[in-house]
Write a protein that binds this DNA or RNA. Structure first.
Lengths: 337, 337
DNA sequence: TTGTATGCGTTATCAG
DNA sequence: CTGATAACGCATACAA
């Protein structure tokens, strides 16, 4: 069969330069070649307008310099941030990213893993929810926020520490009674530990607390019912809320406003993630900030390391608290919610 | 050289099934094969755990089933949305996406085009800012928001119409005097027409207006100076603002609040893009909504069409206005800013 | 319909 | 250091 596109190949360059094919390959790959030869090859490349074609190398070496990132979507700003930093970390190492959006669909999660194998990616980084997901053995695999087994490295923020930090912060800011609200309690993953850390620190500091967790299917209005049930004579039973994500925190704040409760005067709110308005402006709420860039960097570093067996199976990266207008702080910044 | 990974190949399957290599290929690709043969091949595939390897096909056919998307980043929610819909549109057609973040860096824009060629992508969709960008001839290329030449299809929202719609809406909502604020006026692209449409409709409806455009390098505080200069005795000269993007609108609203101006009571604000809180909650401001999904779908459809010459060189897709709390509307929704 | 054989562009081995 | 040549896995033209 003839060439599909008629772009010049290394063979054409070799012929033009009057050298062997292998010599062209060495020049292109920066391996040692005599100056005279190199000059002739470079000239031929110029003259023919030769463009390197990676598909030959892929077939020969079975390395694509590509890593698949499996993630629900990029509409959620936390995922969008993750995608961004993973891609940057990959690019720094001359790797490309094959992006797969699952939309939380379990069958899609599994299908993308198959697809990644077919395309001979050099590794997979996955943030998934399918409880029965089978992790392939023959390909470097790193998960985010979810621990499968000691043979599959998992990278996550220090969710337990973050939950504890939120509780201690509320206590420190004068809260007398707190509640933790979260959604999606079906699957046990690393973020589930936010609750454990919160509870642990509440107990430790003597801060009374309640926990309200919604199953995945339940409507958000359940939170409204919960809050209303704890609302008497214009006051809420809690003066501090720790909420599983910034996104949910934002929605809960709207509910509080409906009850004529002021944030942070009547109720202080701390979220989790560190989402900023339009990606780069102010925080949406006071929050526990995930080290997204470090998470991405660690995932990439890990998935590309030669000896996965030397890698810890769970890597928790430190979080920090940041003021975002929904807690009472000395720093007199403008409230924006 | 021996196999790199020792995964079974079509040859192994053929041997196992006692058929020819070509027959395996036909089975795998769903071409007509005798039932008996097909059964034997399927059984062999099962038995050996054969996984299709796309790298052979790529080399053979020079088609990767991959399209490169070149875009500044995914932190900006508008870009994040675009990435999402482009990927979904590609996936629907069994194409993969090679994502390239330029971070607005001109040299990176050019470099990614080179990289895309090397990797033999089947097409490129690009949202770029480099005024001197050279579009390759030998690869299907579609741009977003920026017109290069009649031979390079450009997909965009109806920016002119959107600007006009904003002006008419402000007029309709009772505005007496309006201003248009935008940033980044160096490069002339499709979004530049937002101003033209706005001006045109202001003139048409007799709405007095001013335009304030910031060059790319200038600090945002210039807008604050502009507003302050038009602020007398607790009143702003304008009771309506149309702002180039939702992101900028959000920042301007913060400036207005510093001047103790209420939105929308004192000043109504309309943005552009249609960005939602956390990607899926309420709009951040009243705005002209871009049809992002249609833009993505059109880009993909266009870049993959066989006969690019039959394609219009500029495709403008309709926008619409949507209430987001920063205009005065009958719909009494809770203000959230 | 099925088998055979060639080549896609590159890398890597081996001999000169 | 350079040249010649054999794979890599698959698709397809051609022969049977």
């Amino acid at each position: 069969m003839a060439r599909v596109r008629n772009a010049p190949t290394m063979a054409d360059v070799a012929r033009e330069a009057g050298v062997a094919l292998g010599t062209v390959s060495r020049v292109v790959n920066g391996q040692p070649v005599g100056a005279e030869f190199k000059a002739r090859v470079d000239a031929a490349i110029q003259k023919l307008g030769y463009r390197y074609n990676s598909s030959g190398r892929v077939l020969r070496t079975d390395r694509t310099n590509t890593v698949a990132l499996i993630i629900p979507n990029t509409i959620n700003p936390y995922f969008a941030l993750l995608v961004h930093h993973v891609n940057m970390a990959l690019e720094k190492r001359d790797y490309k990213m094959l992006l797969c959006f699952t939309e939380y669909d379990r069958s899609r999660e599994a299908e993308f893993i198959r697809m990644a194998e077919q395309n001979r990616v050099d590794g997979v980084i996955a943030l998934t929810y399918n409880p029965d997901l089978v992790i392939p053995e023959d390909i470097p695999f790193v998960t985010i926020d979810r621990f499968f087994s000691v043979s599959v490295p998992c990278v996550a923020a220090d969710n337990f520490g973050g939950g504890a930090l939120a509780a201690r912060k509320l206590k420190e800011l004068g809260c007398r009674s707190a509640a933790f609200l979260r959604i999606g309690s079906t699957l046990t993953n690393e973020p589930s530990k936010r609750k454990d850390g919160f509870v642990s620190a509440c107990v430790e500091t003597g801060l009374p607390f309640e926990v309200m967790a919604l199953e995945d299917g339940q409507p958000l209005s359940e939170f409204e019912r919960f809050l209303t049930a704890h609302y008497h004579d214009g006051r809420l039973d809690f003066d501090g809320l720790f909420i599983g994500t910034d996104s949910l925190a934002w929605q809960v704040i709207r509910m509080l406003r409906k009850l004529n409760l002021r944030v942070p005067e009547d109720v202080q709110v701390i979220g989790f993630d560190g989402i900023r308005m339009f990606g780069d402006q102010e925080l949406t709420v006071s929050t526990i900030v995930q080290p997204v860039q470090e998470i991405a960097e660690t995932c990439v570093h890990t998935v590309l390391s030669k000896h996965l067996s030397n890698v810890p199976s769970l890597i928790c990266l430190p979080v920090h608290y940041e003021y975002g207008g929904t807690t009472r702080e000395e720093k007199g910044e403008i409230r924006h919610v």
